[in-house]
Amino acid sequence: MNKSRRDFLKKAGMTLLGASGARFVILGIADAEHLPDSGGSGVRRRWAIAIDTEKCASQGDCTACIDACNAEHNIPRIDNPEEEIKWIWKERAKAVFPHQLGNDSPRTLRDREIPVLCNHCENPPCVRVCPTQATWKRDDGIVMMDQHRCIGCRYCIVGCPYGARSFNFRDPRRAIDKLRSDYPTRTRGVVEKCTLCAERLAIGAQPACVEACEATCGAMVFGDLANPDSAIGRLVRTTLTMRRKPELGTEPKVHYKL
């Protein structure tokens, strides 16, 4: 009790320092203690995913990545599209890259169904707008969700330019096919989204979608963009990849090869 009171006073005081100064300090509290992922060596990681959409499309209606994510994270299956929960799913390329693909682009490209997920933006608007820091950016670039803190105001959904976030309009428990006990479900009234499998990264595993994709065609590459010698670092530096709506300055970290 006492501790949280002190915390509150401390933060209230910082608030008075003014917007920019306080922003720095308060984010500092959340991020200061180094994550195992960011390593003690002072190396800053920048986790990212690259998706080769042509390879992906060669697998037809493959949903290996989606199924793996849904099972991994106790994602409910809600049939009403207005209330669906989605961390990773497929969208038509024309909707994902409306500026790059016009009516005269190759049909196979326009109509290609490509996986979309949270882009773990370098400069995430969802984090900027959240009034409780229930969503925030970790040192390793992952945009995390703290479902314990979220008040369900949905401002982050309004602020995300990619439709990457889902809100629990109802209790999700009842809509989960196979409940697994080593990952929590969510409760009614909170927002959720892809966390890049932070819980798997913590034990040195790859994100579930990437692992599942590797077992089929290997269209997804996961790694540390800050390391130019990583597979993804080389890929992004040597091939033309695209990111969604780069003009907004959010600096997405999911790269697509069309």
Partner: peptide
């Protein structure tokens, strides 16, 4: 406590 609204009892059966 609201813990069990989300965390799942490790029996694997639905509550």
């Amino acid at each position: 406590p609201t813990c069990w609204n989300c965390h799942v009892e490790p029996t694997g059966v639905k509550p």
